[in-house]
Write a protein that binds this DNA or RNA. Structure first.
Lengths: 188, 188
DNA sequence: TTACACAATTACCGATCAGTCAACCATCTT
DNA sequence: AAGATGGTTGACTGATCGGTAATTGTGTAA
């Protein structure tokens, strides 16, 4: 299997797991949906867990790249970029295929904190927090780390609620809450 | 099976699902862990889904009763009660068995919004929002509903992050964020 | 003691789970 | 053209999935 074929497999597996859930999607079904036979899959991944970890790595990369691009395209101003994060999230919530966050769902199904899948999910959030705190620092926040963690709470809560109740009522509240935290933490 | 026996079964099933996940815990294992044979379980619940719904009903009742009691015991002041919500949550996060929110996990495994399990999870959050907005209204908030939804974002985000990263770094940030939203929305 | 009703258990159903294996087939080398 | 190689496949493993049916107690009334 070529490298591009492998990437394609991981991408398709990512879509399947995202739509269907990790336990609910079996390897047989995955083989059918990806068009790659089970044996061929196991040639490149020792176990289902390995494949899941690969999909999470890809998701982490794709999501953060997407978010970084969106915010950096919006404005050079770090404070504006912090606000732009939530415009990007709002667009995401309104995409037809939106079904919460891959990593929240992963940690829901693999609950033990020392499980590799759980640990990777935590790592994803850590990387996002770091991005937030970098922007906050550039914007002159006195406590960029704490602020970043607070802002992340709003982001994660909004994802959960957009999935549960739909994006309509969440998007506005999320932006309001984020703005309140930003106004409180950043010098005007 | 007596009514109390049935309640006991639902409580034990609740614990199993909470600890292990819905798809991951099979009916055979559940029978073993509850001490009730599979046939006896199916005497009272048509399907696994029915049993899950019963556990969620119980969880909703227990969680909201617990939260209401905690906040009402803290202070008669509605604004103080809003703050007390997050003291209660902090204690919850630090319990040894804490593993996120049953309903967030349920909606992670049953993702379709019209699935009964997903719908019941959404209902739980709706009831909590209603409680928040009632307190906010009593505290004289100009937009109690919007405020309640914003506050819920912090709560849900904190649950997710306490599960992913541990309670240590989350508890303080959660209280800070909640206080910021409360200060912004409520007349001093 | 016998007959009946009911509750719970064991054993089983087809389907699917994660994972493996022997056979196969296309391509490249000699 | 023969053989080797690497990738792919369908068929298969034992275990477990959600759910059911036949059977075995167990308690009560006559």
């Amino acid at each position: 299997m070529s490298a591009s074929k492998r990437d394609e497999l991981v991408q398709k597996a990512l879509d399947s797991f995202y739509r269907g859930g990790f336990h609910a999607i079996g390897m047989d079904r995955l083989a059918k949906e990806t068009g790659v036979s089970k044996t061929a899959i196991y040639k490149h991944f020792r176990s289902k867990e390995d494949l899941i970890l690969a999909t999470l790595r890809l998701r982490d990369e794709q999501f953060r790249n997407w978010l970084y691009r969106r915010t950096e395209a919006a404005t050079p101003d770090p404070r504006g970029r912090l606000l732009a994060i939530f415009d990007a999230l709002a667009d995401w919530f309104e995409e037809p295929g939106f079904k919460s966050c891959m990593f929240i769902k992963a940690s829901s199904e693999y609950q033990n904190r020392d499980h590799p899948i759980h640990a990777m999910s935590a790592e994803h959030k850590k990387l996002l927090t770091r991005y937030f705190s970098g922007l906050a620092e550039a914007a002159g926040a006195p406590d960029p780390q704490g602020f970043a963690r607070r802002l992340l709470l709003v982001k994660e809560g909004a994802i959960v609620m957009a999935h549960l109740a739909g994006p309509q009522l969440v998007v506005g509240d999320m932006k309001d809450a984020a703005r309140a935290l930003i106004d409180e933490a950043l010098p005007q």
